[in-house]
Every structure is written in structure tokens, then in C-alpha cells.
Simulated scan of single mutants.
Amino acid sequence: MRVLLALGGNAMTAPDGSAGPADQQRAIDGAMEHVAELIGHGHEVVLTHGNGPQVGNLLVKNELAAHVVPPVPLDWCGAQTQGTIGYMILGALEASLGRRGIDRRVAALVTRTVVDADDAGFTRPTKPIGRYLTREQACRLIDHGETWQDRGAKGWRRVVASPEPHEVLDTPALLTLLEAGYVVVTAGGGGIPVVRTSDGTVRGVEAVIDKDLTAALLARAVAADALVIATDVDHAMLDHGTPHARPIGQVTLGQMETYAAQGQFASGSMGPKVDAAMRFVRGGGSRSVITALDRITEAVEGHVGTVIESDTAPAIFER
């Protein structure tokens, strides 16, 4: 199977959220053991990943140095973190594959994602990023063109656009690498956000793209057999946080859409993952899976996880 695997932020940081260089390297080393296992089972893998903690680190550097050098824009932050995380994944995955005697080449591709310049998020940004600052600190960054909001007792926080992804611009290069036999790391953090200009060129914009939505878009573009969204739980849950909580196993797209319409999935956590998983199947994909990182091979082979299929698809397994 060709699998588009989307790794969440938990794969890039320590269990307590620490994101120092050593923490990140240990987390990525561990994550790549699971990816290598999936490849070892004969599956073709395209790998994408989050970059929230890494971009957060760069934003702090922006804030602390704003009185000395201008802050770098978010598209630059995305490009930098794609390069850094891609580099770390290359070494870790090559080592994991080598220990298993698997001869596969790995490549990391710096990737741009096209968004609509007229997306409402650019005029009414709502996506909070980074840490809380005092009014004085925030005003220094407002002077550099950033948008900050007063969040009361916690302080001020930056808000940016989170536009809908429309196209992964570098898909042709990705397909070339896949045809040459590479395992490809791509579209990290949802891709570097760019818009098309009137003359047909593209330019970067200040935005954050949801990486799971880009993963769904990319999975269709590369004709993936499955979209697997790796997180820190085995399943999505119904009635999460209540005494009646129960895992969701294999469901049809229609059933999952009903659960989503009932407000079962929180917008800040499981909601975007469920949305992306449904989009892939709704757009013609075979199936989507949401499960824990350490169970991705079992999930792809139909033994665990929340599995979403089209309403007419045959059952993979019984629960």
C-alpha cells in the first residue's frame, strides 16, 4: 500500500512537551523506529509532520531579538523548520532502516502550499500562536506589522490567518522521488504558505496551515491507498471525557459525519484530524485511519485505530 503518514507534534517533542534539541532528536529517533517498521512490512510511505513547537521556538527568538533585528515572517519559519526537521528525520529513518537491513533511500523536500489570497483569515485572523506577552512586549511586535490581541489576565497573544490549503505546489517533484524509490518527507507543518500573484508567480504569506488538512490534500495528489494520522491515542472517542466515553473503531464516512455534526470532536484537538480523515475519504480515498504512533503498522493492516471508509466500502475487519 502507498500510505500518507501524518505525524503529530508528539512525535517531535518529549512526553512533557519539551522541545530542546536533545528532546526533539530522541523523539524523532523513536518515531522513526515505527515508520521503519511500517516500511519493513512492504508499504510505500510518504511522510509529513507537524512543526508547532519548532516554529514556537523561532517565534520566541523573534520576540527576544526584535529590538536588534526584524522578526522573520512565518513563511520563513515554515521553511526553516521543514529543513531542520527533515534533516533530523533523514538521519533517524536511515539509521532505523539500516538496523533492519532495509535498503531504501530517504529524501526531504521543502514544500510550498498554495492558499487563497482572499481567504477570510487574512482580514480576520483568529489562529493564536506563540506565547503570551505583556502589552509593552506585544506593541514592539505590532510595530513590525504583526497582529496581537489582548487576552485578559494571561496577557497579549499573536493571531494569524489559518487559510484553507488548495494545492501542494511541489507535488511533481514529490512524485518523481516516489517513482525513483525514495521514502519522502514533505509538506511539514502543512507546507510553506504561499499565494499566487496576478502575474502567475507565488509569494509567501503570514499564515499557519493545518498540517492534517494538507495531508488529506496531499494523500489524494499522490494516490495514496490510506491516509494515516498518527497521534497520541489509539482511537478517536465518542463522549470523550465523560463516564460514557467509548472508542470509535471501523465506521463509514456517513457515520463519522454524523458524529462530527453532533460536536463529538473538539476543534482544538481531535476535530481537525477527523475533518482531514473525512475529507480524504469524501474525495475518493480508500480509507483513513487515526491511531497512536506506536500502532501505525497494526492500523494500516486493519487491526487497530479509528478507520473511516466510504459508505459502500467492504468491511476490513470486525470489532
Rank of each mutant, 00 (worst) to 15 (best):
R104M: 06
R140Y: 09
R135K: 14
R100T: 00
G83D: 09
R112D: 01
R124S: 12
R124Q: 12
K127P: 11
A79I: 02
D143E: 15
T81C: 02
E146V: 11
R104K: 04
I85P: 14
L133I: 07
R124P: 00
R131F: 11
D118F: 12
D143I: 06
G91P: 05
C139L: 13
G86M: 07
T126Y: 03
T81W: 00
C139W: 12
R100V: 04
R112N: 05
A108W: 06
A138Y: 11
R112F: 00
G83L: 03
T84P: 00
I89T: 03
V106Y: 05
V114E: 02
T84S: 15
T84I: 11
V110E: 13
L133C: 04
D119G: 08
V110L: 14
A95K: 14
L90H: 10
R104W: 04
R105K: 15
G121E: 01
A107F: 03
T111F: 02
G83N: 10
R105W: 01
G121S: 07
T123I: 09
A120S: 12
T123V: 12
V106N: 01
A117T: 07
V110F: 07
V110S: 14
T126V: 10
Q80R: 15
H144Y: 00
A79V: 04
T113I: 10
M88C: 13
I129R: 04
R140M: 13
L141S: 04
I85W: 00
D119P: 09
R100G: 00
T113C: 14
A108Y: 01
D103M: 06
T147F: 09
G121Q: 08
R100Y: 15
A95R: 15
R104G: 07
A92T: 08
S96D: 01
R105V: 10
P125F: 03
L97H: 13
S96K: 14
R99Q: 12
H144D: 13
L109Q: 05
I102T: 01
E94A: 09
T147W: 07
A138E: 03
T126N: 10
G98T: 07
I102P: 00
V115K: 11
R124C: 02
G130L: 11
T126H: 10
L93H: 06
R135T: 05
V110Y: 08
R99S: 01
D118Y: 11
A108H: 00
S96A: 15
A108M: 03
G86K: 03
T111W: 04
E146A: 13
T134W: 11
R105C: 13
V106W: 04
Q137G: 02
P125E: 05
R112C: 04
L141Q: 00
G101E: 06
G121L: 05
G145I: 10
K127V: 03
I89M: 15
I102A: 05
E136I: 08
Y87G: 15
T113S: 10
T147R: 14
C139M: 12
A79S: 15
L133N: 01
T123W: 07
I85F: 02
T81Q: 08
R140K: 14
I142P: 04
L90A: 00
T134M: 08
V114S: 03
R99V: 01
A92V: 12
I102R: 05
E136G: 08
D116T: 07
R99F: 13
G83S: 10
T147H: 12
D116Y: 03
I85E: 14
R99D: 01
T126G: 09
D116L: 12
I142K: 11
